[in-house]
Write a protein that binds this DNA or RNA. Structure first.
Lengths: 124, 124
DNA sequence: CCGTATCCAGGGGGATACTG
DNA sequence: CAGTATCCCCCTGGATACGG
């Protein structure tokens, strides 16, 4: 048989965008930072306290990435001691919505997921 | 000043769920597989062809994880040669919606993101 | 056709110490 | 307070080869 009739299974451009955006915020911490900043602007140390278990290094890296993507803005007040505030940009806020939707999904379906895992693990 | 009035900046339980779910599908490939399966059930080799650049190993691992989470079901037809079909479970389909929302967001805002990146990179 | 096994490079991410 | 610098471990993910 020839293969001229092979089905054109392809990704839409949208699939690839999704993948890239998710990769961008896939880190362990990005989402937590975004969710915190959704409600209020916060200082570096406040974020550090708010995100349980994050190291100084990872918070810095996470913030730099978010800033680079235009999701978070950084404003420095050159006082002594210095003060740096982070807040979600408009772009950041617009992403928080869809992300929250995934969160809501997770909240509702976590029992099913964990049940599926338990069942899968039980039979190896 | 004392710090008894320090603000109770905490994550809601939802934030943590989001983070976990995103970690789960954060892999390079999970989303692409889900999006492909959204429209039709597919065989292993069809998925391999459909997901551009994926290795056999990573496709296997991705499918195992999705199966373990109850998002994808695997059905074996013991013929010669063997045939294995994968399809989204109901749970999987219910996740595809929210993910698509993120995709739509990405589709609309990618120009802004890339512009932000270019600007950020231009000034160091 | 559908995997598993093995090897290996690269980066994510933690701990710690140091600067302005 | 808000980072940067360094070290180091482990996991992800690619290439390849082999088995049912």
């Amino acid at each position: 048989m020839n293969d001229t009739d092979e089905p054109p299974i392809r990704h839409t451009a949208e699939c690839l965008r999704v993948s890239q955006v998710l990769s961008r915020i896939a880190g362990k911490w990005s989402v937590l930072v975004i969710m915190l900043l959704r409600q209020q602007s916060l200082r570096f140390s406040e974020l550090k306290r708010g995100v349980d278990g994050i190291s100084q290094r990872m918070l810095t890296l996470t913030l730099r990435n978010l800033e680079r993507d235009g999701l978070v803005s950084r404003s420095v007040t050159p006082s002594i001691p210095p003060r740096v505030d982070y807040e979600l940009t408009e772009l950041g806020h617009s992403l928080a919505g869809p992300i929250q939707a995934v969160g809501t999904w997770a909240f509702h379906h976590l029992p099913e997921i964990e049940a599926a895992q338990a069942q899968y693990d039980a039979q190896e």
